[in-house]
Amino acid sequence: MLLSPYPTTGERIRITLLWIWCGLVILFLLVPILIPVPLSFNSGAFFIFPLEGISARWYEVVLRTQRWQSAIGNSLIVAFGTTVIATTLGTLTAIALSDEKFPGRRIIMPLLLSPLIVPVVITAVGSYLFYARVGLASTYAGIILAHTALASPFVVVTVGASLTGFDRNLMRAAAISGARPLTSFFRVMLPLILPGVLSGAAFAFVTSFDEVVVVQFLASASQRTMPLEMFIGLREKLSPAITAAATLMMGLSILLLLVANILARRGRKAPA
C-alpha cells in the first residue's frame, strides 16, 4: 500500500528511506526503556556502563530492605485505594454520560478531563495547601483522593468507549422482565462492559502506581512510594537499586496495560 501502482526508482528510494527512518525512531523509542534492565543486574555500586559484573544484589536490596519494602507496600496501598474509588465512581459517571440526554454533557466532559491537562505541579501544590488545612496531608486518604482525581478520567474514557457498543434496549428489556435497576446493572450491563471497566481499572492503577509529583508534596517520610523513593534516589543517593526498582515498576505497568489493552479491544468488539 505504500507504493503507487507503478513505482518509479525515486519512489522506491523514498520508501526505503521511510523504512530506515522509522527503524531509527523505533530504536529511539525502545532502547531507553530497555536500558534499566541490564543495569539493574550490575554488581557495581555506581550507575554506569560498562557493567562491572552480573548480580541480583540490587533486586535483593529492593525486595529485602525495609526502606524499599515499605515503599512497595505504600505504592500498593495507594494504587489499590485509587483503583477501587476511581473505577467505581468513574464507571458510574461514564454510564451517566453515555445517556445522550445527560444535562450539560459538553461542559462536564472537559471538566472531567482537566486533571490530565492541568500541570501536575499545580495540582500537587494546590492539594498540599488544601489538604494540610483539612488534615489530609501526610495521610493515605489524601494521596488516594488526589490520585483519584488524576486517574478517574482514564476510567470515564475507557468505560465510555465500551458503552458506545452497549444497546440500552437491553436494560429496558430487563426492566420489562421485572428486574430491578441494580439487578439489571449487575446481571446485564456489567458483564457486557466488564472488559472496559477492567481496562479502566488497570489504567487507574498504573496512573497511581507511577505518579510521583503529588506524592512528593503530600507524603510524609512514612508514606514514600516506590516512584518517590526512586526520585529521591536519583537526586540524592544514586544507586543501581533504582534501576532494579525501575525494572520492576516497568514490568508491572507493561503487563497490566497489555492486559488492559487486550480487554479494551475485546470490549469494543463485543456484540451488543
Binding site: 555506581f46 550507575f47 554506569i48 540524592e236 543517593k237 544514586l238
Partner: peptide, 13 residues
Amino acid sequence: WDAGAQPAQLLAS
C-alpha cells in the same frame, strides 16, 4: 549538585 551523594556520582560517571 544539591545532594551530598551527587559529587561522587558525577566524578564516577
